[in-house]
Structures are given as structure tokens and as C-alpha cells.
Amino acid sequence: MNQKQLVAERDAAGAAYVEALSSFRDAWARLAAIDRTLQNQNVAQGETIRSWHFASRTRLEDGLRALQHLEFAPRILVIDWHDRAVQISDKQIEGFMQ
């Protein structure tokens, strides 16, 4: 591979990374929302839900920093991840019927 080909491959890999990160965020929010909903006292059936190893928004933010790439994903904001899960979960809780 020459320099031009490597740069083109890097650009393609960067675009794929951005797309994968978006899919990962959607899947994470979906699972986090369900976990949150199942832990809500109005929904919980006494079962313990095994969820994320981090218990706070700050620890989530720390974890997301590891996914940042200076060029292709320079800012991954915890609010885009956490708040999306909360919104989904709130709808689930509001629509919960036993």
C-alpha cells in the first residue's frame, strides 16, 4: 500500500467508525433504558437487574472518553447517551401496565 491508499483507507475506516459508534449509541441507549425501567420501583418485580458496571453519569462520561478519536469522533457527549436512555425509559415507565 502506498501513502495515498493508506490515507484513503484511513478515511474509510474513520467513516465506518462514526457509523458504528452511532449504532452502538442506539443499542446502548435501548439496553440502558430497559435496565432503568426494570429497576423502577413501579415496574420492578423484586428481581435484581444486572446492568452496567458504572453507577453514575460521571463514570459513563469517563468511559465514553476512551471511544473518542481526535479527528473522526472528537466529542462524544454523555448527554447524548444518558439523556436518550432516560427519555426512552421514561416512556416505558409511563406506559407500563402490570
Score class of each variant (00 low, 15 high):
Met1His: 10
Asn2Thr: 09
Asn2Ile: 06
Gln3Trp: 15
Gln3Ser: 12
Lys4Leu: 10
Leu6Asn: 12
Val7Lys: 05
Val7His: 10
Glu9Trp: 14
Glu9Arg: 15
Arg10Ser: 08
Arg10Thr: 08
Asp11Ser: 14
Asp11Trp: 15
Asp11Glu: 14
Ala12Glu: 06
Ala12Ser: 13
Ala13Glu: 11
Gly14His: 03
Ala16Gly: 11
Tyr17Arg: 06
Tyr17Pro: 00
Val18Lys: 10
Val18Glu: 02
Glu19Ser: 15
Glu19Thr: 12
Ser22Val: 13
Ser22Phe: 14
Ser23Phe: 10
Phe24His: 00
Arg25Pro: 01
Asp26Val: 09
Ala29Met: 02
Ala29Cys: 00
Ala29Ile: 05
Arg30Lys: 10
Ala32Ser: 08
Ala33Arg: 11
Ala33Ile: 01
Ala33Ser: 03
Ile34Val: 09
Ile34Arg: 12
Asp35Pro: 01
Asp35Arg: 11
Arg36Met: 02
Thr37Asp: 00
Asn40Phe: 13
Asn40Leu: 10
Asn42Ser: 07
Asn42Tyr: 11
Asn42Phe: 11
Asn42Val: 05
Asn42Thr: 12
Val43Lys: 00
Gln45Ala: 15
Gln45Asn: 15
Gly46Ala: 03
Gly46Pro: 01
Thr48Lys: 13
Thr48Arg: 10
Thr48Ala: 07
Ser51Gly: 08
Ser51Leu: 06
Trp52Tyr: 08
His53Ala: 12
Phe54Cys: 00
Phe54Pro: 03
Phe54Asn: 01
Ser56Val: 03
Arg57Glu: 03
Arg57Ser: 00
Thr58Ile: 12
Thr58Trp: 13
Thr58His: 15
Leu60Ser: 01
Glu61Ala: 12
Glu61Cys: 10
Asp62Asn: 11
Asp62Tyr: 15
Asp62Lys: 08
Asp62Glu: 07
Leu64Pro: 04
Arg65Met: 03
Arg65Ala: 14
Arg65Val: 07
Ala66Gln: 12
Leu67Cys: 05
Leu67Tyr: 05
Leu70Asn: 15
Glu71His: 08
Phe72Cys: 05
Phe72Arg: 05
Phe72Ile: 07
Ala73Thr: 00
Arg75Ile: 04
Leu77Val: 06
Val78Tyr: 12
Asp80Phe: 05
Asp80Glu: 01
Asp80Ile: 00
Trp81Asn: 02
Asp83His: 03
Val86Glu: 06
Val86Pro: 05
Val86Cys: 01
Ser89Asn: 02
Ser89Trp: 03
Asp90Lys: 09
Asp90Trp: 10
Lys91Pro: 01
Gln92Asp: 06
Gln92Lys: 14
Ile93Glu: 01
Ile93Asp: 02
Ile93Arg: 04
Phe96Val: 04
Phe96Met: 06
Met97His: 14
